[in-house]
């Protein structure tokens, strides 16, 4: 028995850490200067899955889509008890909006196959859209339970879950499989386990291993390197330390629904908010003074 859970996680720039130092001279954000972190609500999604497994048994597969550096969040999942980790990494997936992202994730979830729950964080802090969860549910043909707070009852193929709807809560009953988006008030994510950290800090994808081999064996022939790579991949696989790496072909992704082509929304213009804490402006207590200030606030979108 037990339940098979898939958890979708994302690596995001820590937008809460935008300070004077992370701003460029022109007032725009220097994204590279922001630390890359585990999207906060995705940790709660992982915890929700771990709670299901703690109580009923089963497996947890963590997936992420992103650059290879995002395997860091997958290792974080392994440190906390995930059984398997998969990264979807493909240049052709770049510039995907939420719709294209959910399509690609749906292909990966379908490739994994046998599952009972898909857990996502409610939203990611770099976009705050909360759209990928519901869109992924639709693409998979699953019912969705958003704003999950806790499992009320899980009985064979039927789950009762409590969700927080802002001005109250409700309990929904859904048949499995179901997609759930998790709030940060749902649980207290457990810390990484010390033993698991020792064990999984070496978990890598094949491509990361290839880079490692290239660095370690600068003077070797291609043949020797290929051989060494195959050996290391096999060692990792045997120790269950190999992070699966899939591209769009592996998940049978139809390119017309991926990346820029698959994204109906396009960015037309971006304005940076210039952080000017020291900028103080005295406004005359006159109609003209007040009108000028209101105008300024409308132009910079402070007032809608």
């Amino acid at each position: 028995m037990g339940y098979h859970c898939i958890v979708c996680v994302k690596q995001v720039p820590d937008t809460a850490r935008v300070t004077g130092e992370t701003m460029k001279a022109d007032g725009t954000v220097n994204r590279a200067a922001l630390p890359a972190i585990f999207n906060p609500e995705d940790l709660h999604a992982l915890e929700a899955a771990l709670e299901v497994r703690d109580q009923y048994g089963g497996t947890i597969t963590a997936i992420t889509m992103g650059p290879l550096g995002a395997t860091k969040v997958l290792r974080e999942c392994l440190f906390r008890g995930a059984d398997r980790a998969i990264i979807i990494n493909d240049r052709r997936a770049a510039a995907s909006d939420t719709l294209a992202t959910s399509y690609i994730l749906s292909r990966a979830v379908q490739k994994i196959g046998d599952f009972d729950f898909v857990f996502c964080g409610r939203q990611a802090i770099d976009g705050d859209t909360a759209q990928v969860g519901p869109q992924l549910a639709e693409k998979l043909g699953l019912p969705q339970v958003t704003y999950y707070e806790r499992m009320v009852d899980l009985n064979e193929r039927t789950a009762r879950m409590r969700r927080n709807v802002g001005n109250g809560w409700e309990v929904l009953e859904a048949k499995l499989p179901v997609l759930v988006t998790v709030l940060d008030t749902a649980n207290e994510p457990r810390p990484a386990g010390a033993r698991k950290m020792m064990q999984f800090k070496k978990a890598l994808t094949a491509q990361e291993l290839e880079r490692e081999v290239a660095a370690d064996m600068k003077d070797a022939t291609d043949e020797q390197r290929t051989e060494e790579l195959a050996r290391r991949i096999e060692t990792l696989r045997m120790n269950r330390l190999l992070i699966d790496q899939w591209d769009l072909d592996d998940v049978d992704g139809d390119l017309q629904w991926c990346g820029l082509a698959g994204s109906p929304t396009k960015v037309h213009r971006v304005q940076s908010i210039v952080l000017t804490k020291d900028g103080f402006k005295a406004i005359e207590p006159t109609e003209a003074g007040v009108r000028g200030m209101i105008h300024e606030l409308i132009v910079d979108h402070t007032l809608g």
Partner: peptide, 25 residues
Amino acid sequence: TPLGRDLAPRIASEMRAGLTADCTD
């Protein structure tokens, strides 16, 4: 709203249409 943010993406996905969240203008 919590309801709108639950509903609109579901519709956008089924219609394969674009959706922008939380507009201020």
